[in-house]
């Protein structure tokens, strides 16, 4: 199980990128050691050497960490970091926005 007791505050692209680096380190430490630093907002999963099973585990990590669930269809269409980030943004409302929406 992923330890999600301390859910990150994920607001910026940099926050999400860090979350994805953590997910990669969790899913495959070897691939993470080789390509985590190279992960940017334009990388494809193939560029980073992330195979489908590794991506599956990364998605599981992110879902547990943020307490969200992607559909299988959404999950299987992720083939780059921008796509991954967009999907996280779709499902995860940042804490600041949540506070704002409560007040309106």
């Amino acid at each position: 199980m992923v330890d999600n007791s301390a859910i990150h505050e994920v607001n910026t692209d940099a926050d999400i990128l860090q979350l994805l680096r953590d997910a990669l380190a969790y899913a495959d430490p070897k691939v993470a050691a080789a390509s985590s630093d190279a992960m940017t907002m334009t990388s494809t999963l193939a560029d980073l050497g992330i195979e489908s099973v590794c991506a599956l585990e990364m998605v599981g990590y992110v879902e547990d960490k943020l307490n969200i669930l992607f559909s299988d269809d959404e999950m299987s269409k992720i083939n780059d970091i921008p796509g991954f980030v967009a999907l996280i943004r779709k499902h995860h409302q940042p804490l600041q926005e949540k506070k704002h929406s409560h007040g309106s």
């Binding site: 999963l45 195979e51 489908s52 099973v53 991506a55 599956l56 585990e57 998605v59 599981g60 879902e63 669930l69 299988d72 269809d73 999950m75 299987s76 269409k77 083939n79």
Partner: peptide
């Protein structure tokens, strides 16, 4: 490998009545 996941693994999990989080 992405098509293998989307066109084989995930549809089969659904048919088997198990889930992606369980497989992960």
């Amino acid at each position: 490998s992405q098509q293998f996941l989307s066109d084989a693994v995930l549809p089969m999990l659904r048919k088997l009545g198990t889930t992606r989080p369980d497989l992960v």
